[in-house]
């Protein structure tokens, strides 16, 4: 008995490197194209994946969704490689990836912040674009937003709430909704508002009134379960998940280029000291410098900013930018689809 066990062990040790070699050769001959993208791009990129793979039968697209900041960090810090990177805030590419990991990016889609809810939400039958902040003030209402330190949707939600003060001419909105329920603070200097975020562990939320999660997509289940009544989210995500939502006025929803001067009055300082200035929501896409399949990556970007990709975005509630805007040293394969920014 002992001999048999020993023999088996020795055999397995000896043969394992060999079987390993065989294993490496067997996977299908398809080219694997890695796409890292923001959580809010999950649905459109899923659909684009299907269409792209149909058009390119030799390609297997593998997507990884995460918060936009994490998506970039996977490449810059964890040493992972991807062929395409799509983020919910295009400014992350110049600030975190250029020049070492990328030398161009394309602005390809817009979005706006809405306040999503369901039929079960308290006061769902009362809420509208004029009274939403009054409803959120009520003590029995619980609302959610993502962590401003981690996630563009998080700091954008903060901007929207502060912008609401200006638009509705009610200087207590940020105070009532955020400062009274968290350790986040607003300071006013030289005509601009600076929202200062503490360390994530020190946000100290009043959990009767607010729920914070790292990424905006993590709040979807909390809304469905009725653990929160409302949350700040991208319009496209609310639409894709069949949620009801209050449309916020263009002056505050970060969706309109027309009001960019108004958005600029708000800045958010994250725990790292980085400051984001309010501006219209623009999604960015690039092919990293160290992409294993650069040409195919560019082909994928072409698809996203081309007619078919734009229709997918449009259908899923996310307005594409037509034509897409190219920044930096973008590849000539894209010249015909891109307007220089």
């Amino acid at each position: 008995m002992k001999k048999i066990v020993l023999l088996l062990l020795v055999c397995s040790v000896i043969t394992s490197p060999i079987s390993g070699c065989i294993g490496e050769k067997t996977p299908s001959e398809k080219v694997v194209l890695k796409v890292f993208h923001a959580g809010s791009l999950s649905k459109p990129f899923e659909e684009i994946e299907n269409q792209f793979e149909k058009a390119h039968p030799g390609v297997d697209i593998q997507r990884e969704a995460a918060g936009s900041v994490l998506t970039v960090r996977k490449i810059t810090e964890l040493g992972k490689v991807a062929d395409v990177v799509g983020v919910a805030d295009c400014s992350l590419i110049p600030s975190m990836m250029i020049p070492e990991y990328a030398d161009w990016y394309i602005e390809f889609a817009k979005n706006e912040i809405v306040l999503a809810y369901t039929d079960k939400s308290r006061y769902a039958d009362e809420i509208n674009s004029d009274n939403w902040y009054e409803i959120l003030r009520r003590p029995d209402v619980k609302f959610g937003f993502s962590n401003p330190n981690d996630d563009p949707c998080g700091y954008r939600s903060q901007m929207v709430i502060q912008l609401a003060e200006l638009y509705y001419n009610d200087p207590a909105i940020y105070d009532d909704l955020i400062e009274k329920n968290t350790a986040m603070r607003m300071t006013f200097e030289n005509g601009t508002y600076l929202l200062v975020m503490p360390g994530s562990e020190d946000i100290n939320p009043n959990t009767d009134r607010v729920m914070i999660r790292s990424m905006e997509m993590e709040l979807i289940s909390a809304l469905e379960n009725g653990d929160i009544d409302y949350y700040f989210i991208y319009r496209s995500v609310a639409k894709q998940h069949g949620e009801k939502f209050v449309e916020l006025p263009p002056q505050i929803n970060l969706g309109s280029v027309e009001y960019k001067d108004m958005y600029r009055k708000i800045r958010v300082k994250r725990v790292t000291g980085e400051i984001s200035t309010g501006k219209p929501i623009v999604y960015g896409i690039t092919v990293p410098k160290n992409a294993p399949h650069r040409d195919l990556g560019i082909e994928f970007v072409r698809f996203v900013i081309g007619e078919k990709g734009q229709r997918v975005l449009e259908d899923l509630g996310q307005p594409p930018i037509t034509p897409a805007t190219g920044n930096g040293n973008f590849p000539e394969e894209l010249v015909d689809l891109v307007r220089e920014g």
Binding site: D150, S200, E201, I203, T207, S214, E218, R270, V271, T272
Partner: peptide
């Protein structure tokens, strides 16, 4: 844990948070 209780932060959540907001060195 992170699904049901993001706050108060336990050590693994804090490590994840520091990683996302400030990076590997933090």
């Amino acid at each position: 844990v992170v699904v049901i209780a993001y706050h108060p932060m336990i050590a693994p959540t804090l490590i994840y948070e520091r990683y996302i907001s400030a990076g590997l060195s933090a």
